Amino acid sequence: MSNNQNFKQQLASKELVIGTFQKTPSAMVSEVLGLTDLGVVCLDAEHSPFDRLTIDQCIFALRAADKPSLVRVPSAQPEHLLNALDCGATGVVVPHVTSAEMAREVVAASHFGAGGRGYAGSTRAAGYTTKAMPHHKRDSAAQTVVFAQIEDIEAVDEIDAIAAVEGIDCLFIGRIDLTVAYGAASPKDDVVIDAVERICAAGAKYGRPVGMFVGDLSEIPRWRECGASVFLLSSDHNFMLGGAAALQEKVEAG
């Protein structure tokens, strides 16, 4: 079984998954990240200038490396979900999911069925017509993952209802957005930490994996204890900046 096929099972079993965000809309960057041991790469089409063609090209490069790929879509609009999944992404990260109703709509738009994702057999995900419809529908149901990004006060208030929605494969915590939403000075302020703990508790209660970004890697053991199992950390931009700084420091140190 390929890594792409196995990713949904990894999530469900709450195995530790370490991935990163790709901010640069470049298939070459995806190809390089595909050579790493990271468990998943998330294309950040919400905050970086990925268009439909670059999403397609980057997913192609990641699939060639058998690297699971997520697309953090610009919004929950069905066309964004459809495009990412038709291009062959393993799943989608949907920002600003604030209610159970919205979570159900996102799940429906990410899967085939009445009122759900539009079907086409000519896509990469369908093997460019080489996959029969029953096989494509079966594989999509078995492999497609949906991350609901929890980053609003309303979402925290409704977190039990959101976590109870079948088809949500991960509650992904947008801690920086929560910091802004609560008017906190730091993502380590008590009000933010309390919100993160509430989300983790809801994940545990309803059996939903929990994911997050953390800037301080020393926090990971704490959040692992709270049940978080998916960590999308750093980014290709940070890798370049960190590598350049390390090179400069090493050379200057002689």
Rank of each mutant, 00 (worst) to 15 (best):
M1I: 08
Q5F: 13
Q5C: 11
Q5P: 10
K8N: 08
E15N: 15
L16G: 01
V17Q: 03
I18Q: 03
G19L: 07
T20E: 01
K23C: 14
T24S: 14
A27I: 02
M28C: 12
M28N: 11
G34F: 03
D37W: 11
D37K: 15
D37T: 13
V40L: 07
V40P: 06
V41L: 12
L43R: 10
D44Q: 08
E46C: 05
T54A: 04
Q57I: 09
Q57L: 15
C58A: 13
C58P: 09
A64I: 08
D66G: 09
D66S: 08
S69Q: 06
L82Q: 15
D86E: 07
C87F: 02
A89N: 02
T90P: 01
G91S: 03
G91N: 01
V93F: 11
V93K: 13
P95H: 03
P95C: 13
H96V: 03
H96N: 14
H96L: 08
A100D: 11
A100M: 08
E101F: 02
M102Q: 15
R104A: 15
E105I: 08
V106M: 04
A109W: 04
F112R: 08
F112P: 05
A114V: 11
G115W: 05
G116T: 09
G116P: 15
G116S: 09
G118C: 05
G118N: 12
G118A: 13
Y119S: 12
R124M: 05
R124T: 04
A126I: 09
Y128F: 15
K131P: 09
R138E: 15
A142G: 06
Q143W: 11
Q143D: 13
T144L: 02
V146W: 07
F147V: 00
F147L: 02
I150A: 00
E151C: 11
E151N: 07
D152W: 06
A155T: 06
A155M: 06
D157H: 10
D157C: 11
D160Q: 10
A164S: 12
V165I: 07
E166G: 14
D169Q: 09
F172H: 07
I173Q: 00
I173N: 00
I173M: 02
G174Q: 04
R175P: 01
D177Y: 04
T179D: 03
A181T: 11
G183W: 06
G183I: 05
G183V: 04
A185C: 12
S186A: 10
S186P: 02
P187C: 07
D189T: 02
D189E: 10
V192K: 10
I193W: 01
I193P: 01
V196M: 14
V196A: 08
E197V: 08
E197S: 09
A202H: 00
G207Y: 03
V210S: 00
V210D: 00
G211V: 01
M212L: 07
G215I: 01
G215F: 05
G215W: 02
D216M: 07
L217G: 03
P221C: 07
P221E: 12
W223D: 00
C226Q: 15
G227Q: 00
A228S: 10
L233N: 08
S235I: 10
D236T: 06
D236R: 05
F239H: 13
M240E: 01
L241W: 09
G242I: 04
G243P: 11
G243L: 08
A244H: 13
Q248C: 13
E249L: 09
V251I: 13
